[in-house]
């Protein structure tokens, strides 16, 4: 209660005066101070907060600017804040990079959501080809005997037709699985053979789709922001999302075998434990979660 009252007062009243005093003392605006005083993801994060909380329309709109309009937007901010390019050369470069990251993250979420919303459709040739590609990548030495066959359970689908397993993750689940198998084929094969372990085994594809959900919900809740701000100097793209998914898959497999669950029936409990672990890692301002192969 007290904390939320303080927050309200700070946002609407003190913040303005604190900023004013700093401005008088340092002769620089808040954005300039952040650009000078911080680096990496922390800097972008602070710039984003400052822009979101700003009462100035130009600054507020800057967080959702288009990629092509970033340059112009930085100019507008400099005009608005009366920042002379000659006096502060680095400001323009810094702001441009931050805006690309901030607006890029928002665009990435929209792109990912677009793929997720597309349900798997077995009448769509492109979808079917992707599914067949997944089989060929994971089982290069074995041919599918039919489109509908029990063989699908060899790569961890539930029944004899994978189409019903993508559910709420739609095409995104399949695209993630194919990306991992294509770009990290050795790791995918290694994990697939792990997943056939007689006591600790799990269903490879189904777990993969559950990990798509995890990556998606971390992106949606903004938990992935600092990771992308630290690891991608410009706008993050679909490729970066896939890379994070691959990181999750490899780390989850390690985690599962370290934890040695009693049986697959405890999957959801361990999934949650793993999710919490990742969320904790993402709280660090210096976080970069990339593959260690």
């Amino acid at each position: 209660m007290l904390i939320s009252m303080w927050r309200y007062l700070y946002r609407h009243f003190f913040r303005f005066w604190v900023k004013w005093i700093f401005r008088m003392v340092t002769r620089k605006c808040e954005l300039q101070r952040i650009c000078e005083g911080f680096v990496g993801g922390e800097r972008t994060h602070k710039i984003e907060n400052a822009l979101t909380l700003s009462k100035n329309q130009v600054l507020q709109n800057a967080t959702s600017v288009n990629r092509s309009e970033v340059e112009e937007c930085v100019e507008d901010i400099m005009k608005e804040k009366n920042i002379k390019p000659k006096k502060d050369r680095r400001f323009k470069i810094c702001m441009k990079a931050c805006l690309l990251q901030i607006s890029g993250y928002k665009q990435l979420y929209l792109d990912v959501e677009n793929v997720r919303k597309r349900p798997y459709d077995s009448n769509n040739q492109h979808h079917e080809e992707l599914l067949m590609k997944l089989w060929r990548l994971l089982m290069p030495n074995e041919k599918l005997k039919a489109r509908i066959t029990k063989q699908w359970s060899d790569i961890g689908f539930q029944g004899d037709d994978p189409k019903t397993d993508f559910r709420g993750m739609g095409l995104l689940g399949l695209v993630n699985l194919v990306y991992f198998s294509e770009n990290y084929t050795n790791e995918a094969h290694r994990i697939l053979s792990h997943s056939n372990h007689p006591t600790l085994g799990y269903s490879y594809a189904i777990v993969g789709i559950n990990l798509t959900e995890m990556a998606y919900s971390l992106l949606k809740s903004d938990a992935l922001k600092v990771h992308f701000y630290n690891s991608v100097p410009s706008s993050p793209t679909m490729e970066h999302f896939h890379q994070f998914y691959c990181y999750l898959f490899i780390e989850f497999d390690k985690f599962w075998f370290e934890e040695e669950p009693e049986s697959i029936m405890y999957f959801n409990q361990y999934r949650e434990k793993f999710h919490e672990k990742i969320k904790r890692l993402l709280l660090d301002y210096r976080v970069v979660l990339t593959l260690k192969i």
Partner: peptide, 12 residues
């Protein structure tokens, strides 16, 4: 929310 459901491994 029922829009992000995935296949159940184990139980809920």
């Amino acid at each position: 929310d029922i829009s992000h459901i995935t296949p159940t491994q184990g139980f809920n």
